[in-house]
Computed example of a mutant assay.
Amino acid sequence: MTTGGWDRVPIAAQTIEATLSQFATFLVLEIGPGDDDLATARDTIAGIDDLLKTVGFRDLSARLSCVVGIGSDAWDRMSPGHRPQQLRRFPRIETAQHVAPSTPGDLLLHVRAERSDLCFEFVRIVMDAFGSSVTVGDETPAFRYFDARDLLGFVDGTANPVGRELTEAALIGDEDPEFAGGSYVVVQKYLHDLATWASYGADLQSEIVGRDKADNTEHPDAETGQKAHKTLATLEVGGVERAILRDNMPFGRAGSGEFGTYFIGYAGNVTVTLTMLRRMFLGDPLGMYDRILDVSTATTGTIFFAPSAEQLSQLGG
């Protein structure tokens, strides 16, 4: 994550550029099949601002924020015949070596704060509001690790855009005016084999990632052959780099041997994010995949649309 992101300030729900936080909770939900289930879910997410205020006023310096994303199937139920141009299900990527699975998800709540108890309390009252209308597909509490490193030991999100570039990269613009100000959100939950990773040693780890582990300096891009993670996860079109906003966070339970990274990428053009992932899994050239995948297994993969705050509020009954 970039240090330039630390001056981003949340204003309300759906503030994509909310401050990179000490803590986060990623909540993926499935809406029940009934009309009452749908109505309750719609009303709850439409009133998310009021729920934020209920918890956030207790410590304004903790900068509690939440972004709500809506999956493709759920959007069709909420607004049939009226959908963002690029909203779709996550396309499964499968090779002989690795798989990026496609997993279900109707709603995503990306909750951020400087205090873990505020994340917990907000999720608690949101789930009370949803009641029996939803079931939990995945709940992942996450945390900032040292100087914004992942559990592999490297600084994460260094190439994040800032300022005007952030808006251009993360938000839909005039190309889909009806949904301008919204964002496509891709999430994947990765589990890491830290024992194998540790056996590589710092030099090989830095070669695989493409950055020095100690000071985060970039290694030169390989002209041919095997490319590093930072190169494969970077997309250039016509000589211009196409960025996304990453708010990845580490998570884990050391006593259970669970260590991971929750990838979350916001983009105004979801094809940019998906192309980056295809480059990682398929390789460039083909077959020379991202070697970080040998120790990092994707267990989920879902695309959501995060509407603007105004559009979100209009979904309620």
Score class of each variant (00 low, 15 high):
residue 277 L to Y: 09
residue 305 F to M: 02
residue 274 L to V: 02
residue 268 G to K: 01
residue 290 D to H: 03
residue 309 A to W: 05
residue 218 E to K: 13
residue 230 K to S: 13
residue 251 F to E: 02
residue 270 V to H: 03
residue 241 E to C: 03
residue 227 K to W: 00
residue 287 G to W: 14
residue 226 Q to Y: 14
residue 293 L to E: 00
residue 306 A to S: 08
residue 236 E to L: 13
residue 273 T to C: 08
residue 293 L to R: 01
residue 309 A to I: 10
residue 232 L to H: 07
residue 230 K to R: 13
residue 265 G to S: 14
residue 260 G to M: 08
residue 291 R to Q: 14
residue 224 T to E: 06
residue 306 A to H: 07
residue 230 K to N: 14
residue 255 G to I: 06
residue 227 K to F: 00
residue 300 T to K: 07
residue 246 R to G: 09
residue 228 A to N: 10
residue 289 Y to G: 00
residue 232 L to M: 09
residue 225 G to Q: 10
residue 270 V to G: 01
residue 219 H to G: 03
residue 309 A to Q: 14
residue 253 R to Y: 07
residue 307 P to N: 03
residue 274 L to Y: 10
residue 271 T to K: 10
residue 241 E to M: 09
residue 272 V to F: 14
residue 265 G to E: 10
residue 252 G to W: 05
residue 244 I to E: 01
residue 274 L to H: 13
residue 295 V to M: 02
residue 231 T to N: 01
residue 291 R to E: 12
residue 226 Q to G: 08
residue 248 N to H: 12
residue 229 H to R: 05
residue 230 K to V: 11
residue 217 T to C: 15
residue 291 R to A: 05
residue 227 K to L: 03
residue 242 R to N: 11
residue 258 E to R: 09
residue 221 D to M: 11
residue 232 L to Q: 05
residue 276 M to A: 11
residue 264 I to V: 15
residue 279 R to I: 02
residue 274 L to I: 05
residue 239 G to A: 00
residue 295 V to C: 08
residue 243 A to D: 12
residue 261 T to W: 08
residue 250 P to D: 12
residue 220 P to Q: 04
residue 289 Y to C: 01
residue 231 T to V: 11
residue 282 L to H: 14
residue 250 P to I: 11
residue 288 M to Y: 15
residue 242 R to E: 15
residue 255 G to L: 06
residue 217 T to L: 14
residue 237 V to I: 15
residue 283 G to D: 08
residue 290 D to M: 05
residue 227 K to N: 01
residue 243 A to V: 05
residue 248 N to R: 07
residue 256 S to M: 12
residue 220 P to L: 03
residue 265 G to R: 00
residue 275 T to C: 05
residue 296 S to K: 02
residue 225 G to C: 11
residue 244 I to S: 03
residue 262 Y to T: 06
residue 274 L to A: 06
residue 251 F to L: 04
residue 238 G to V: 11
residue 247 D to C: 02
residue 304 F to L: 04
residue 244 I to M: 10
residue 287 G to N: 11
residue 277 L to H: 05
residue 280 M to I: 04
residue 228 A to S: 15
residue 269 N to D: 15
residue 301 G to L: 01
residue 278 R to D: 05
residue 252 G to V: 11
residue 251 F to H: 04
residue 238 G to W: 09
residue 236 E to G: 10
residue 242 R to D: 04
residue 247 D to Y: 06
residue 231 T to C: 00
residue 280 M to P: 08
residue 304 F to A: 04
residue 281 F to T: 13
residue 249 M to K: 15
residue 241 E to I: 11
residue 289 Y to W: 07
residue 294 D to L: 01
residue 264 I to F: 00
residue 244 I to W: 02
residue 224 T to H: 12
residue 253 R to L: 12
residue 270 V to Q: 07
residue 244 I to K: 01
residue 230 K to G: 03
residue 220 P to T: 04
residue 235 L to A: 11
residue 303 I to H: 05
residue 277 L to S: 06
residue 265 G to M: 09
residue 290 D to P: 05
residue 296 S to V: 04
residue 290 D to E: 05
residue 284 D to H: 07
residue 262 Y to H: 09
residue 270 V to I: 15
residue 222 A to F: 15
residue 286 L to P: 15
residue 288 M to F: 14
